Simulated scan of single mutants.
Amino acid sequence: MNGTKTSGRGVKDIDPAHLARLNAGEVEAATLVECLAVDFALLMGSVLPDIGSGPCAEMHEAREAGISRRMLLAARLITKRYGPSAIERLARHSSDTVRGWVCAMLGAADMELGDRLLAIRPFADDPHFGVREWSWMAVRSHLAAELDVSIALLAKWTVDPSERIRRFATEALRPRGVWCSHIAALKQQPERALAVLEPLRADPSIYVQDSVGNWLNDAGKDRPEWVRALCERWLAESPEPATVRICRRGMRSIPVVN
Rank of each mutant, 00 (worst) to 15 (best):
residue 2 N to L: 14
residue 5 K to C: 04
residue 8 G to K: 05
residue 10 G to P: 04
residue 11 V to Y: 03
residue 11 V to D: 08
residue 16 P to F: 06
residue 20 A to V: 12
residue 22 L to F: 07
residue 24 A to E: 13
residue 35 C to W: 12
residue 35 C to V: 15
residue 36 L to R: 15
residue 37 A to M: 09
residue 39 D to A: 07
residue 40 F to G: 00
residue 41 A to T: 03
residue 41 A to S: 13
residue 42 L to M: 09
residue 42 L to D: 10
residue 44 M to D: 02
residue 44 M to Q: 10
residue 44 M to C: 15
residue 45 G to E: 07
residue 47 V to Q: 03
residue 48 L to E: 05
residue 52 G to P: 03
residue 52 G to C: 03
residue 55 P to C: 06
residue 57 A to G: 02
residue 64 E to M: 05
residue 68 S to E: 10
residue 73 L to S: 09
residue 74 A to K: 02
residue 76 R to N: 10
residue 77 L to S: 03
residue 77 L to F: 08
residue 83 G to K: 12
residue 85 S to V: 12
residue 85 S to Y: 01
residue 86 A to S: 15
residue 86 A to R: 08
residue 91 A to C: 06
residue 91 A to V: 13
residue 92 R to G: 10
residue 101 W to M: 12
residue 105 M to L: 06
residue 107 G to D: 04
residue 110 D to E: 15
residue 111 M to R: 13
residue 111 M to S: 11
residue 115 D to M: 07
residue 125 D to P: 03
residue 127 P to H: 06
residue 127 P to C: 03
residue 129 F to E: 12
residue 130 G to E: 14
residue 134 W to G: 01
residue 134 W to M: 11
residue 139 V to N: 01
residue 140 R to P: 02
residue 142 H to L: 01
residue 142 H to K: 09
residue 143 L to P: 00
residue 144 A to F: 01
residue 147 L to W: 07
residue 147 L to N: 00
residue 148 D to L: 06
residue 154 L to R: 00
residue 155 A to C: 00
residue 164 R to P: 00
residue 167 R to V: 10
residue 167 R to E: 11
residue 168 F to Q: 05
residue 168 F to N: 07
residue 169 A to R: 01
residue 172 A to L: 01
residue 174 R to A: 04
residue 175 P to K: 08
residue 176 R to K: 09
residue 176 R to P: 08
residue 181 S to K: 14
residue 188 Q to L: 13
residue 189 Q to H: 15
residue 190 P to E: 06
residue 191 E to N: 08
residue 192 R to A: 07
residue 193 A to Y: 01
residue 195 A to W: 00
residue 196 V to Q: 00
residue 197 L to M: 12
residue 201 R to Q: 13
residue 202 A to T: 14
residue 203 D to T: 01
residue 204 P to M: 12
residue 205 S to H: 10
residue 207 Y to M: 13
residue 207 Y to L: 12
residue 211 S to H: 07
residue 213 G to P: 13
residue 213 G to T: 14
residue 214 N to V: 04
residue 217 N to M: 08
residue 221 K to V: 11
residue 222 D to C: 07
residue 223 R to N: 04
residue 223 R to C: 08
residue 226 W to H: 01
residue 228 R to G: 00
residue 229 A to C: 00
residue 229 A to Y: 00
residue 231 C to T: 06
residue 237 E to F: 05
residue 238 S to Q: 14
residue 242 A to W: 01
residue 242 A to N: 03
residue 243 T to K: 06
residue 247 C to D: 06
residue 249 R to W: 02
residue 250 G to K: 05
residue 251 M to P: 00
residue 253 S to G: 00
residue 253 S to A: 13
residue 258 N to M: 09
